[in-house]
Design a protein around this nucleic acid. Sequence first.
RNA 1: GCAGCCAUAGCUCAAUUGGAUAGAGCAUCUGACUACGGAUCAGAAGGUUUGAGGUUCGACUCCUCAUGGCUGCACCA
Length: 610
Amino acid sequence: MPPSKQRRPSDCDFGAVFRARSHWLDSSLVLHTFVAMSLQSELQQHVAAALRASGIDESLAVVTPSTDTRFGDFQTNAAMVAAKALKRNPREVAALILEHLQVVDLCESPTVAGAGFINFKVLDTTLSDAVNAVRNNGHLGVESVKKRKTIIIDFSSPNVAKPMHVGHIRSTILGDSLARIARHLGHQVVTDNHIGDWGTQFGKVIYGWKHLLNRESLEQAPIAELVRLYREVNALEENDPALKETVRLELVKLQQGDAENLEIWKQAVALSWKEFERLYGLLDITFDERLGESFYNDALGPLVDRLLAEKIAQLSEGAVCIFFPEVPAMEEKPCLIRKSDGGFLYATTDLATLEYREQRWKPDAVWYVTGAPQQLHFEQVFAAGRKMGISTDFRHIAFGSILGEDRKMMKTRSGENVELGGLLNEAIERALAVVGEKNPELPKAEQEEIARLIGLGAVKYADLMQHRLTDYVFSWEKMLSFQGNTAPYLQNAYVRIRSIFRKATSEGMGEGTSTPQAPITITDPAERSLALQILKFGEVLHSVLEDQRPNLLCLYLYELADAFHRFYEACPILKSEDSVRSSRLALAGVTADVLKTGLSLLGIGVPERM
RNA sequence: GCAGCCAUAGCUCAAUUGGAUAGAGCAUCUGACUACGGAUCAGAAGGUUUGAGGUUCGACUCCUCAUGGCUGCACCA
């Protein structure tokens, strides 16, 4: 089996990455000062005013949650940053800022600590107001971006006539989550599944189809049969140069538009799509576009000719290349766009795709969610794009590999790629076993639905919760555990809150099942920390998008569930007096809403019971 | 050879413009408890952040060098 032909990207062009980064940081700054609803932003505005009054650059006004509860709720390090630029004593600068800082209506008197940290402890009333506002404003404190961008996200991209396997998981799950989050924040998102439907594998598939096809197998398990054909022809070719040539000619005929071969190709693509769609349906993932490589076939020749004519590309050793003498790291790494035999390459299609997208959507950004090994390829494509006069913010959203328990690339015992379908089924089966054991009295159908949510959620979450660039070790035991930072733990936190509401309803406390609208009053320390965590939701999604890192959202949700459980232990809800009970129920209700919304942005659903 | 990514507790991973005593989970050990779902919570223990320099009031974070692992590098995708 050849290595995965999955699509690719990279961060190796420092120039591009740096520009891209500043681009996004700029927009997030705009955003932070724009969001009036957030308590953190409100503090930030006051700090900005104080900096202005102190004659300090107000762009330094950054307020963050405190690193430790001992230091209060929020902090700004602006004094230390400013002191550095001004070559002054940080604590003196902090004192100067404090003289101009007007926050009495929000917090206790800010204090200067350590090297020049300014700490804020928010008043209980302020906190109560802020949480009530988040609960009431309909979007849980998440403000849309001020500057809406059109973002194309290219992800998943399996290869036709091959099964989707573990190598496709990360791209698929990561891309889908980023798309959901970007949309949630108000961006215009186009998801495009750039499938590999025109590879050289078709020479073998077509030859096999003509000579070795088993119709029955094809109907029962299309992709498996296609793979069998591919492998069998591959094996036959090994010691048979004549056959190898015959197979190559089948490919050439296809490329030249031979009717019979084209028909076989079409059927193979359609059969593959059917199976892909089944998996995407299971995963609850959809695409706006499914423009595979074949879609660009007709554009390749003219594109290469034009690039030659424009002197962007040149002939070299019989091939057409784009050189990058101006980029030292790529001086000797040309991008090939036409082989000496006239054939086109991976990069050719990518450039055609890039151009098509520019014309059709005029995107502000294009994100390629593909593995880290494809760095150089994308660096070349992006650089070529710039030579073509395209200034769009291209990003390679790279990620690491999935490793088996042996810390090597995850494979089956026989050394093959682990198929995605089987893996997802196993996740669901394993979850079903747990649900059946924990809650045997639930109806079978409900158990199965719950198992689906838990099993798929576990697989997705295990992938998303880690920094995307690090390789991660696949472990059923860990991802399906109900303890620790896992999807089941978060789903359980949600379920537990729903359980409280069911009980409240059944005991005539009349709170119903939707988020209660009673006023929330924060007094207890456990309520405080839960409330503060809820308020961070508005910030965290923007952070995720700045660096395309859903693991920050995972971390946030885990800490939210953790804060809820501590609140749950420390603060009786249903046993409390009326006003306290209604306040706590409402606080639990907002927590559930944030958990559900946050998980949905990771592509993970929540059951009502589990 | 050239280039990129990575290196943090026994294990799997975090660490918000460079910030305060580097945090979690698992595993280990102690506790709470006939419970609003214990599918929980509280606590203990566990670190020279691979190594050596440098910049800084301050470095896991930035720079240089070294070591180790992974990956890529002209006609595959």
